[in-house]
Structures are given as C-alpha cells and as structure tokens.
C-alpha cells in the first residue's frame, strides 16, 4: 500500500498496522492520533480547528515533561562522558 505525496515523500503502511490517521490538510499519515495532532499544529498551525489546538496543548504538556526527563538524561550523559574522558586522559598521561 503505497502512495505518492505532494511533499515528495512516499508512505507505506505495514500490513499488520491497526491504525492509520490521515492528515486532512496534506498527505501525511500516522500510526497514532498523537502524532497527527503534533503534525497538524507543527505543519499547519493557522488552519487547525479549535479542538486540535486544545488537544495539542494537553499533549504537549505531557511531552514537555517527558522531554524534560530526556534532557536531564542527556545532560547527565554529557557529564558522565566528560568525566570518563578526563579520567582516561589522566590515567594515560600519568601512567
């Protein structure tokens, strides 16, 4: 099941897929409703119905929280990397 879109992208839905959400304003399709709401607000912010805008606000708060945790993980990973590297350098330069 393949279709050509105006954006030059091709979409293909796996045969076992249970859900296909179609963007009413362009040819993007998504496996979840959440993805569709995000897409509509990001790609067509001026043409969105009010319900979508409200749904987006709710979803983006949840996502912001997840993103916050994600960024905390990234920052700790950065710190760990720097410390690890500094440790290896110290070890090599002394030894």
């Amino acid at each position: 099941m393949e279709q050509k879109s105006t954006s030059g992208l091709e979409f293909s839905v796996p045969s076992h897929a249970s859900m296909v959400e179609q963007c009413p304003l362009c040819e993007f399709i998504f496996p979840t409703h959440e993805n569709l709401v995000f897409h509509m607000m990001e790609s067509h912010p001026t043409q969105c119905p009010i319900e979508t805008t409200k749904e987006y606000e709710k979803l983006s708060i949840t996502e912001s929280d997840k993103l916050f945790i994600y960024h905390l993980k990234i920052c700790s990973l950065l710190m760990l990397t720097f410390m690890g590297l500094a440790y290896v350098y110290a070890f090599v330069l002394v030894g």
Partner: peptide, 13 residues
C-alpha cells in the same frame, strides 16, 4: 521512529 514514511523516502531524505 514508528513512522509510515517509507524506508526508501527516508533513505533519500
């Protein structure tokens, strides 16, 4: 990324 964009399209992009 659990997307419906085809592999071929991702390849090109």
């Amino acid at each position: 990324s659990s997307t419906y964009i085809s592999i071929q399209s991702l390849n090109m992009q």
